[in-house]
Design a protein around this nucleic acid. Structure first.
Lengths: 219, 219
DNA sequence: TTTAAACCTTAAGTAAACCTTAAGATTATT
DNA sequence: AATAATCTTAAGGTTTACTTAAGGTTTAAA
């Protein structure tokens, strides 16, 4: 897990970095909005802690802009303001949570974890094996980072492999799993596997001659 | 949005159904726990309003059981009891909120909204994803900064996408969420999607062939 | 209350993607 | 080299989704 901390108070930042390090969280600390924007464009983060009171711009506008641009990461906002209206305003423009300074670093850590957990609870429907990734909630498949467009049957077959957790599947099992009892009198499974290999790589699905197929580690 | 109301007082139920209908919420009203259990197994809901005092069983046990079985929907509980202990007990066994009779229907509606929003991690009334923005309090939709005029059904369908948090929705789910049990024997969802795409852009809603549709990032 | 406008549901036609076949080619095994 | 298993290809035929338009219903305005 990797968090982006945007904060110009070095002492405070240091405290956060250390506290989160103890939790096994990698924190990248930047002290300006400009740097933050650049980092967000080029790096992957799990969450952002954003101080709204930095001198080099308007933090609220930045937050709004991120949300408009589809940044969906959890964002916790830090401000000097303590009143309820400010809090509401923050949530309105897209923050996930809010802390007013001064705050106990342990509280920040707790909230961060809660938010990431919430986020995780929603999308732990990911399968990942070698270079293959399947997002079950979106029915999307990525291979070596690239989105692969699969037909319904191809997707079904691949999902069966993913769910078989490294076991060999016979052609018969595959047929049953994807067709149910609607028997299929042909080699269509073979054809779908052929297409899957073509769209990704031949090595993705290994043939176990005389028995069936198995999903293979890819890189 | 589709809510399951479990309540044996017909007059009260009618009031709730009508009030929520004005808010664009589809309410399915059932008058027994048995029916509710069955409905929950077979249908998709966004939330449940549960009267604990029905004659055909123990509402608290039912609630507990649902939670044990992994039902994570927001549930608002209605009871005749007014004391604080009862309220705490309800929350303990898995309710998200509590109302004691008699209550103002408007309050129920407000709490329902708040809870559903919270559930979706939107602690604000704005949804923003790519170039699409929805203001739930005003029922307004903006695309690329421009106000888009949508009909009631178009708006409902779009809101379901917004609240599905990046998941694929099957045509069936969309139908259930916007029509409830008033089965619709046609392709009207397809038509509404067609209109939404026409008013904004084709890319807004991606079709996942053989499965359903998903809201896509737009710019 | 009447009238007009907007809207929703249908249904049917069209186009595209997809699935199953089957047959020939290739590869592994004996 | 012979045989069996698997791969590859391409062509119907089928399913799925898109589009359009008409009729009926609701909503709003006069």
């Amino acid at each position: 897990m990797r968090v982006l901390l945007v904060e110009d108070n070095k002492l405070l930042a240091q405290g956060v970095v250390m506290s989160l390090a103890k939790e096994g969280v990698q924190v990248d600390h930047l002290a300006s909005y400009k740097q933050a924007q650049a980092a967000l464009n080029n790096e992957d983060f799990s969450a952002i802690i954003l101080d709204l009171g930095l001198p080099d711009g308007n933090g609220e506008d930045l937050l709004k802009q991120w949300r408009r641009n589809g940044v969906s990461l959890p964002i916790i906002v830090l401000t000097a303001n303590t009143d309820f209206d400010t809090k509401l305003a923050c949530l309105d423009i897209g923050a996930d949570d809010y802390l007013s300074k001064p705050f106990d670093v342990r509280e920040l850590v707790a909230r961060l974890r809660a938010i990431i957990r919430r986020q995780h609870g929603l999308d732990n429907n990911l399968f990942s094996f070698g270079a293959l990734e399947i997002d079950f909630t979106r029915c999307e498949v990525h291979f070596r980072g690239e989105l692969v467009s699969l037909s319904r049957r191809e997707y079904q077959v691949l999902v069966e492999f993913a769910q078989s957790a490294g076991r060999v599947l016979t052609r018969n099992q595959l047929e049953q799993l994807t067709y149910g009892w609607d028997e299929v009198g042909s080699n269509s499974i073979e054809v779908h596997i052929h297409h899957l290999r073509k769209k990704m790589t031949t090595e993705l699905i290994k043939t176990v001659r005389g028995i069936g197929y198995i999903l293979a580690q890819t890189s």
